[in-house]
Design a binder for these strands. Structure first.
Length: 214
DNA sequence: CAATAGATGTCCT
DNA sequence: GGACATCTATTGG
């Protein structure tokens, strides 16, 4: 399969709501020191904008954690959440504005054995179907925060094959309880690699969003 | 299959 | 202190 060329800086220098659906079908790759390659095709993303109550950049001011999100586009924003997981985002929009796209799920293409070792499971569907899973499968952690995906020799986003508009599903974002009515989650319709256990993910998505924690 | 408890960093909207 | 862009293991039907 042809994975294409690196996406240019201009691709990321747009509003996150525009970049997000355009990221579906694109390919995240990582080349390891020994030459092995990891590759996965993005099938689920979410947009986050400055001023958005659900966004880390809501206040408009960077913190030690969110600094990268406010920087130039095309870089990787990695944050630690729930006390034990890392999640990966691609920084979008102009330098100085805190906007990014959360990489929620992907279809593994290459380096599955390495991903399985990183994840501690052999189940292909569980390798990259979730933001923390995807991040773990690629061995991404705090050290990768701020990596320039446009120029880095190892970690990149390739053009792949973008999806046609009709192949893209939209919904409200997962786990967002504030400002959740924004339909800023984008996913590939019918893909079995989107994050599991979310009923409204599937074609027969009816509105069934209840409280999720006690 | 569904529900739930537990892990516990970072920011406070 | 409380909420959170989550995942896993375990329990119960």
């Amino acid at each position: 399969m042809r994975l294409g060329r690196r996406l240019p800086r201009s691709f990321f220098a747009r509003p996150s709501t525009e970049v997000a659906p355009d990221l579906l079908g694109r390919v995240l790759t990582r080349t390891l020191a020994d030459g092995a390659r990891l590759a996965a095709r993005l099938v689920e993303v979410e947009a986050y904008e400055q001023g958005d109550p659900a966004s880390h950049s809501y206040t408009g001011r960077p913190t030690a954690r969110t600094e990268v999100m406010f920087g130039p586009p095309g870089r990787l924003y990695v944050y630690f959440t729930y006390g034990q997981h890392f999640c990966s985002n691609v920084v979008t929009g102009p330098d100085g504005i805190g906007s990014a796209v959360l990489l929620r799920a992907a279809e593994p293409l290459d380096g599955l054995e390495i991903m399985a070792a990183n994840r501690g499971t052999d189940d292909v569907r569980l390798l990259c179907s979730g933001p923390a899973r995807l991040t773990q499968a690629f061995g991404i952690a705090r050290a990768e925060n701020g990596t320039d995906l446009v120029r880095d020799p190892s970690l990149n986003l390739l053009s792949g094959v973008p999806l046609s508009p009709r192949a893209i599903g939209k919904s409200t974002r997962v786990g967002v309880t504030v400002g959740g009515e924004r339909p800023w989650r984008f996913f590939e319709r019918g893909s079995s690699f989107v994050s599991p256990g979310r009923p409204w993910t599937r074609a027969s998505a009816s509105r069934a969003r209840g409280s999720r924690r006690s």
